[in-house]
Write a protein that binds this DNA or RNA. Structure first.
Lengths: 208, 208
DNA sequence: CCCGGTATCAGCCAAAAGGCGGAGAGACCG
DNA sequence: CGGTCTCTCCGCCTTTTGGCTGATACCGGG
């Protein structure tokens, strides 16, 4: 069988060369190309179609990882996209998965786990680091804690530091409605105050 | 002259091997040891004293980078500590510098910049990535916007989502005093509400 | 066709937060 | 020594937030 070809996408040169060195130790895996940004990834993917694209979600500037995944999937060379990132934020996981990612591996994973993920992705299997899987699982098990679209929208403004009045104006709803949504959000996040909600949201959703 | 010996401290294996590969291209630089945590770094530094310690600030669990720097400096084998991290958060820079770091380099820096930083640190020179230096510079220019130690302490609890009452209990001060500190913090951060303060603080200070 | 989920709004009341002005004690510095 | 900074605390008043209860309307599935 031909070795699995991999395209690395990460804005840090150190991470790319580290990953290349690591994957290089496996005879059945070959890094065929690299890209430092979402835009570059799309271009490079044209020239060097790979079996697996390993992508960091947090790219310094320009297109973010999620957007890049969507575009890659649209261009659909049926290559599998494997998210390789530092954080296991709830929101990122969900967004990545529904952007079409085949797997989600954290940067602090053991080498064997990384290899397994690449091989799995190449075979069309879905692979997740344990902490990632458990987060996803928890969301499925506990739909009561999943925000509705409207609530999520409000939350994303809330964590900018807006007041109830400002939130109302932005969303074209009354302050009363804002309060209702907030009460629901607090309940779902397990907090009592907006301050705590912001703290939790930013940390847990990676909303920055 | 003997090559410069380097000790790498980072909880991500990928980053360590990438950095090792990168530094390996320079004849005058040799990586002599690695560590995956602050605790390990201290132990390893005993066995393999290096000229320069390259340290990530954000270590998964256990001792954080700042703490590790302090301890290393106390043990003082006069080795230079170079911070090598992803974020250029205001607070981290200040804390690292006064914990005794010789330099501060961002992970997305160009290879030449990284090499220069290592060489500079080995010679006892202070080295900073441009964005880092400019942040520090701005703080010196604008002392009105720098939080006092007490304010910073309060802020670090604030962004956990605590109420004024809770803040008071934690810091053994009255609620009145808490409000006074908060008012000063708001002024310095340029916000009017605690929600906005939390939002700004978490984003700008990287306080997570 | 009724029910559950979502989104919208209201009013009332208590608690929390914020603005304002003032003030004393200790530390540090020129 | 005098000025500045920092940390501490008070009271008073206004605004904001949060808790509670209840209500209307739309939509989609069983």
């Amino acid at each position: 069988m031909n070795p699995i070809s991999v395209l690395l996408v990460d804005d840090h040169l150190v991470v790319r060369s580290g990953l290349k060195a690591l994957l290089g130790t496996q005879p059945d895996i070959t890094v065929v190309a690299e890209a430092a940004s979402g835009e570059e990834a799309l271009a490079v993917a044209q020239q060097h179609p790979a079996d697996v694209v390993m992508m960091d979600l947090a790219m310094g500037q320009g297109m973010d990882g999620i957007e890049a995944i969507k575009r890659l999937r649209q261009a659909s060379k049926q290559q599998a996209v494997l998210v390789f990132t530092t954080y296991d934020s709830d929101a990122d996981i969900v967004r990545a998965v529904d952007a079409g990612a085949m797997g989600y591996v954290l940067k602090d994973a053991a080498p064997e786990e990384i290899f397994a993920a690449v091989r799995g992705a190449a075979q069309g299997k879905s692979v997740m680091s344990a902490p990632v899987a458990s987060k996803l699982f928890q969301q499925l098990r506990n739909p009561d804690e999943v925000l509705t679209p409207r609530e999520a929208e409000l939350l994303s403004l809330l964590i900018q530091g807006l007041s109830n009045r400002e939130l109302g104006k932005r969303l074209f709803i009354s302050e009363a409605t804002v309060k209702t949504h907030l009460a629901h959000i607090y309940a779902k996040l397990g907090v009592e105050t907006r301050a705590a909600a912001i703290a939790v949201a930013i940390r847990r959703e990676g909303m920055r």
